[in-house]
Design a binder for these strands. Structure first.
Lengths: 302, 302
DNA sequence: CGTTTCTCATAATTTAAAGTTATTCTTACA
DNA sequence: TGTAAGAATAACTTTAAATTATGAGAAACG
C-alpha cells in the first residue's frame, strides 16, 4: 500500500467541500483527473471508499464523513506549523539561554532584563551566571545559546561580538582618597586583593599590574567584587574593579576610587555563540540591545 | 515555497529521535542524502532551521523542539486514519440508516434489532419507518443507506435483494371461525377493509382480490394493520394481513384467521440500496442477518 | 428513444519530485 | 597534520504526480 500524503488529504477535503471533482480540482488549481487519481489512491490506501459517486452527485460515505473532521484537523495542524515558524523567525521570540560571567552579571543584568522586556517581550530569557570556562563548555554542549564574557575567548567554534570596553579602577582605603594616582611601581608594592582562581577578571587585573599569576599571597582572595571592596574598606589592601561595578559596590564601603590616566587599563566585554547557531541573526540583534543597555561606546564588528 | 509533506515530517521526527542523519536514514530505510535534502527543504519551507548541525552533533533548534510534539501529533493522527479505515471496512461497524415499511416494521424490527445487536454490536442502527415511495426518495437522496420493502421496486438505480416470501391471511369475525375458506367470489362480496392510500400492502391486497384500486367505499380504511384487525373484531368486515402480523395483531381481538390454499397469496419482502453504495458488501451481510432474523425460507439472489 | 450533456474514470505522455551512488567539505581528534 | 566521521552536494535514475485527450455511464431533453 502506497502512503497517504498531505496532498491527498487536501484534495479529499476539497472534494468533500464541493461535492464535485471538477470544482475541487479548480479549487486546488489542478486538473480533474489529478484529483480523481489521488482520491482513488487515497481510497486504496484506506481500503475503503471515501465517496459514493452516482451520476449527478458525489457524496461522502459514512467512513469519509467520519474522517473528514480529523483530516481537517490534520491540515490545520500542518498550517499551524507554518504560522509558528513565521512567528519564530522574525522578531525575538522563543527561549534564549544566556550565560554571563559573575564580574559583569550583577551590574549589567538589571539593564539587560529591563531593555529586553521592552524590546523583545516575547523572549523567554534564561540566565546562567558562572565562570568563563564553564560558560564555554555549556555553550559548546548546546546547553546555552549565548554568553557574555570578556573577549577574546579564541575558540574557533565560537563567534565573538564585542559589546563594550570596560575600564578598571583602583579601589583603596578612604583615607588615601587625596593621595595621587599610584604609579605602576607603587601598585606592585601594594597588597592587591584578587578574586579566586578561575575568574577571568583576576587574570586581567594581574596582567595589568604586570604580575605573574602565581604570585598571590594567602588570605588575599575574595569570591566576589563585593567582598573585595569590603576587604579594602577594612584597610587590608587595594583592589581593582571594573568601572561598571563602581556605583553598586562603593556605595556602602569606606573606600575611594582612583581612575588611571590613559592608557587606561580595560577589558573588552563581548557576546559569544556557536558558529553553527541558527539563531545567529537574532543573537546579533540581541547583542545590539545589550550594547545599548550597557550604555557604552559602540564596539566594532568581529 | 514548496509544500510541506508528510514524508518530510516523518524524516524530521526520525532525525530528532536519533540526533543523527545517517541513523535516521536507515530508520526510514532510505539513504542519508535523501534525508538531508528533505530536511533542508522542510527548513526552507519554514524559513527557519530545525536542526543545528555541528561537526559531531545534530541538535534540535528551539523552534524544532517547539514543533516536534506537534509533528508527532500530526503523524499519529494520520496513522489513526488508517486504523479507523481498518476498523470501518471489515465487520459491520459505523452508522446504518435503514428504512422499513410500516406493514413489516412492527413485526420484523424486534427480531432484527435483537439479532444485529448480537452479530454486529458495533453497528449504529438508525431506523426510519414510512411508506415505500418516501423510503425510495430518501434512499436516492442519500438520507438512507438501505430499506426493507416489498419487491419489486424496479428502480434501475437501486439494487434489490429478496429477504423472504410472506403469505397473506384473511382476518374475519370470530363468529365465522368455523366457516369454510371463502372462494374468490365470496371474497369480492365481503366488505374488505384496507389500509390508506400509499401503503403498498393495500395495493397487494387489492391485486390479490382482483379488484381495481378505485373501488374502496367510505369508512373502510385504516391507518395500520392493528386498526384494521380491531375493526374486523367489531364485525364491520374482513381484511387481509401478512402472516407475520398474525401473532401480534390477533392476540387481543375477536377475530379468526383463515389461510388460503395454495397458491397462497403472498408478497416478497426484500432489501434495497443504491447501486452506487459502497456499503454493498456490508449490506449484503446485513440482509443475511435480517433473513435469518425473519426465520423465513431463503430467498434467491437478485 | 436516441441524443446531448454532465461528470468521473482511464490512458498516454510530460514534468517534477524523491531517491540512489559517488564525492566533497568541515571539523574533531589522535 | 593526517585520518575519520558525518553532513552536504552533484550527477543521475527512478518514481510519483501532473497534463491533455479520450472514454464511458447515467441523467436530462427534445
Amino acid at each position: 500500500m502506497r502512503n497517504v500524503t498531505l496532498k491527498q488529504l487536501k484534495y479529499f477535503e476539497a472534494v468533500a467541500a464541493t461535492g464535485h471533482f471538477g470544482h475541487a480540482a479548480s479549487l486546488c488549481s489542478i486538473s480533474q483527473p489529478a484529483i480523481s487519481v489521488q482520491i482513488k489512491e487515497l481510497e486504496e490506501s484506506f481500503g475503503t471508499a471515501l465517496f459514493e459517486r452516482s451520476a449527478r452527485q458525489v457524496r461522502l460515505t459514512s467512513f469519509g464523513e467520519g474522517i473528514l473532521p480529523r483530516v481537517q484537523g490534520i491540515l490545520r495542524a500542518v498550517d499551524d506549523l507554518g504560522d509558528l515558524a513565521r512567528a519564530a523567525q522574525d522578531g525575538l521570540t522563543g527561549r534564549l539561554r544566556l550565560g554571563i560571567i559573575p564580574t559583569v552579571a550583577p551590574y549589567l543584568l538589571p539593564k539587560i532584563v529591563g531593555n529586553l522586556a521592552l524590546e523583545a517581550p516575547d523572549l523567554d530569557l534564561h540566565i546562567r551566571e558562572t565562570l568563563t570556562d564553564k560558560l564555554i563548555t555549556e555553550l559548546q554542549e548546546g546547553r546555552l545559546d549565548a554568553a557574555i564574557v570578556a573577549l577574546p575567548v579564541s575558540e574557533p567554534s565560537l563567534t565573538e561580538v564585542p559589546l563594550f570596553e570596560e575600564a578598571f579602577v583602583l579601589v583603596r582605603g578612604e583615607a588615601e582618597a587625596d593621595k595621587p594616582v599610584p604609579s605602576m611601581e607603587n601598585l606592585r608594592e601594594m597588597r592587591l586583593l584578587l578574586l579566586e582562581e578561575g575568574h577571568c577578571f583576576r587574570d586581567q587585573a594581574l596582567s595589568f599590574c604586570g604580575m605573574r599569576s602565581n604570585l598571590p599571597r594567602e588570605g588575599m582572595e575574595g569570591s566576589s567584587l563585593s567582598t573585595l571592596v569590603q576587604m579594602v574598606g577594612t584597610g587590608i589592601g587595594v583592589t581593582l574593579i571594573p568601572e561598571m561595578a563602581v556605583p553598586v559596590e562603593t556605595r556602602s564601603a569606606d573606600v575611594s576610587i582612583v581612575r588611571f590616566p590613559a592608557p587606561q587599563p580595560s577589558r573588552q566585554i563581548g557576546m559569544i555563540w556557536r558558529n553553527s547557531s541558527p539563531m545567529a541573526k537574532q543573537l546579533m540583534q540581541i547583542s545590539a540591545v545589550v550594547r545599548r543597555a550597557a550604555g557604552a561606546k559602540e564596539g566594532t564588528s568581529a
